[in-house]
Amino acid sequence: MNEFVRGIKKGFPICLGYIPVSFTFGLIAVKMGFNPLEATIISLTNMASAGQFAGIRLIEGGAPYIELVITTFVINLRYMLMSLSLSQKVAPEMPFYKRAIMAFCITDEVFALASMEKEDVTFPFFGGLMTTPIFGWTLGTCLGAVASRMLSPMLQGCFGIALYCMFIAIIIPPARKGRKVAIAVIVSALLSCLFKYVPGINVLSKSGGGGWAIIVSAILGAAICASIKEVKRFNKRKLQEGGAHV
């Protein structure tokens, strides 16, 4: 029980941070035509900002299920990595049902705190850690969705930019500090613009909510950057080997 309380305490700041983000999600979902209850259920059952956001665009655009599944998969691919990393940090004998409960709330922030634990992550601790963020994420969505109904169309429109600007605030600082992240961000943005505006290939963004365009842009961007790094590693190794022979 002690561990659970410790988890609650650690998770509470995440809960507070989630409220404004999910608030804007609620606003956008209602602007797109979902009702507040639907918006809230989507948040409660997904716990994923970018994934949910792309998802509602696709659902609203009437995209086929396969596009919805693949887009959700690619956008949430990072959770797979986090889940994998976390699988190394729990006791090997932890039963499947406990792992299955933990899996529900592997978000960026919860993962970050859990992976900072010095010892193995216990089930009560993670349970406490995830409780308030789930509450905050759901509550914020509900509030945003209800508030959206009270705004004028102009204000509702302007709030649509909020979530995008949060994305900007997430990607710009690391891009400023690391050149490779900057390349990744720019390449993906350019590709995404190409897929929207260049005749012929813009069919990708015309279907449904543009899921394919996001997938292809992101995968190409990440693949290009990972390959640049691979080539650099290869050259460095070759240089070192060459040096050893001299």
Binding site: A50, V74, A184, L191, C193
Partner: peptide, 21 residues
Amino acid sequence: EWVRDFLFYIPFCVLSAMTFP
């Protein structure tokens, strides 16, 4: 290592592609 790098860049690329244009 390539897969690890790829997964490292994916979040940035996804957010960027979703935001622009």
